[in-house]
Simulated scan of single mutants.
Amino acid sequence: MLFKATFLFSLAVSALALPASKKTKVAATAADVLTVQNYADFQVSDGVAGDALAEVKAKFPIDETNLAAVSANDLAIIKAARVTAEAAETDAGGFNDAIAAAGKSTTAGKALQVGKIKNKVLKLQLEVLALQIDQAQSGKDNSAKIAAEQKKLDNNIKTDAASKGATSQSVDFQGDDSA
């Protein structure tokens, strides 16, 4: 009887200690990597085409081998940056407006179109990353959404690579990655 009581007590103590130790481990590894920036500072559309994904990863250096350890602050910045990148494409004063004003066949219009593709790589990489982090941290199955967004991302990466060396132009879009 004493053995049963000791066993049950040990089991209860272990069960209580497990969540605390797991929480401590996550908190200890969830250090912030990112800081809030203006769109002009985290955009990747200036320069030349061909390596947009690497440019995005340099601006958002998240350890993709340990997504469960990404801080809540970093995840909020990633999500906000994605929203801002999408706004830079579609909102007033964004890529769509700038391309229409310049004309698609002009030199300026072509450079803006190349920049728009690089911006799409930014937006979609951040979307995929946010979904993967959410899945790693919550256990929620985002695999179908991740696959759909990854397919779009892969298409834009291919378009960017096909334009390698072409001049890329950003837009003067106001926004930031604050939550």
Rank of each mutant, 00 (worst) to 15 (best):
F173T: 01
V83I: 14
D134T: 15
G93I: 09
I62Q: 04
I117G: 01
V121C: 05
D176R: 04
P19D: 07
F60A: 06
G109I: 03
D41K: 10
A161Y: 00
K164E: 09
L53R: 10
V83W: 04
T159D: 09
A92I: 07
K152G: 02
T84Y: 04
A98K: 02
A101Q: 08
G109T: 05
G175K: 00
T24R: 03
N73R: 10
A179K: 10
A162C: 05
S45W: 10
F173S: 02
D97N: 13
Y39D: 06
K23L: 11
Q132R: 14
D172V: 09
A130L: 09
A101D: 14
A100N: 12
D134H: 09
K164I: 05
N66C: 06
K59S: 10
Q113D: 08
Q37W: 04
I146R: 06
A92N: 11
A166Q: 12
A100R: 12
Q137C: 03
D46W: 06
D160Q: 06
A144W: 00
L8I: 15
A147R: 07
N119Q: 08
G139F: 02
T159Q: 12
S45K: 07
G50E: 12
S178L: 09
G175W: 00
K151C: 06
L112Y: 08
L53Q: 14
G165L: 07
I133M: 05
A58T: 13
S143Q: 12
I77M: 02
D134K: 13
E64A: 11
V171F: 00
A108L: 08
A80N: 08
D154T: 05
N96K: 13
G94R: 00
F7E: 13
Q132G: 03
D176F: 05
S138F: 04
A69D: 14
A72L: 08
A92M: 09
S170E: 01
K152L: 15
A72S: 12
I157Y: 00
D172A: 15
A85Q: 04
D46H: 08
T29F: 09
K118Q: 14
A87F: 05
A130E: 05
I133T: 02
I157W: 00
S178Q: 14
S14W: 11
A72K: 09
F3D: 13
I99P: 01
V128H: 06
V33S: 03
V121F: 09
L129Q: 05
N73H: 14
L124G: 00
A100F: 10
K164F: 05
E127H: 10
K25R: 10
A72Q: 11
A148G: 12
D176S: 11
K104S: 15
A161T: 13
F173E: 01
S168E: 01
N155F: 12
A85T: 08
A76Y: 02
K25E: 15
I146E: 04
